[in-house]
């Protein structure tokens, strides 16, 4: 069975934020919530500036799932980590456990308390009926069910952001790093951030 993964090539990412805008637009994500964000280091320093597009990495041993007190997370057979917004109580424990800062919380009600969690679904919807209005309202588009790749990766102009079967993505990663004359045994950012410590 294939296992879905993201890979962002920091040599190609140009901090255009196209992925962020595409994600927000496609899923009608409210202000204050960013399922995907772009991080830039050494900004303005020639030859050293690098950017990275970050979202949920859909961990195989997802710590968010381990820590959730309502057990609202589930992992699909293809490795995509999803959650049930009907169960989520917005405690925020998943945010503390996540190595990548993927869980997002909007403000709700007159007191502005944090609402239920929202995160990248790999454009695979949620537990509601596939391609239904409820699913869109809760989780956004279900592009995987339509046979498409996630919106962020499909919109990436430089093809820095790639999504798909981990084995295939790894091949592209190895090809690119080998072409640059780099060590191909190192994994992409985020692929081993959590597992290294185990």
């Amino acid at each position: 069975m294939s296992r879905m993964k993201f890979y962002c090539d920091d040599y190609r990412c140009v901090d255009c934020n196209g992925c962020v805008v595409a994600c927000k637009e496609a899923h009608e994500i409210p202000v204050g919530v960013n399922r995907r964000r772009v991080i830039t280091i050494n900004e303005g320093i020639e030859g050293k500036q690098k950017s990275l597009s970050v979202a949920c990495m859909h961990c195989s041993d997802a710590p968010c799932q381990k820590v959730c007190p309502t057990d609202c997370f589930y992992i699909r057979k293809d490795g995509i980590v999803l959650h049930d917004k009907e169960k989520c109580i917005g405690c925020g424990y998943c945010l503390y456990a996540c190595p990548f800062g993927a869980p997002q919380f909007g403000h709700e009600g007159i007191f502005g308390v944090k609402g239920v969690m929202d995160k990248c679904t790999f454009c695979a919807g949620g537990p509601d009926e596939t391609l239904s209005e409820t699913e869109f309202e809760h989780y956004g588009q279900n592009r995987i069910a339509e046979g498409k790749i996630p919106m962020c990766a499909s919109m990436c102009a430089t093809k820095a952001l790639i999504a798909g079967d981990a084995a295939e993505v790894d091949k592209i990663y190895e090809y690119r790093t080998a072409k640059r004359g780099e060590n191909t045994s190192l994994k992409p950012y985020g692929w081993e951030a959590y597992n290294n410590g185990k």
């Binding site: 920091d10 991080i39 830039t40 280091i41 050494n42 690098k50 990275l52 970050v54 190595p99 990548f100 800062g101 950012y189 985020g190 951030a193 959590y194 290294n196 410590g197």
Partner: peptide, 12 residues
């Protein structure tokens, strides 16, 4: 540096 900036430091 990238890990610190993107994910926060010293996860483990």
């Amino acid at each position: 540096q990238m890990m610190n900036a993107a994910f926060g430091p010293a996860y483990n």
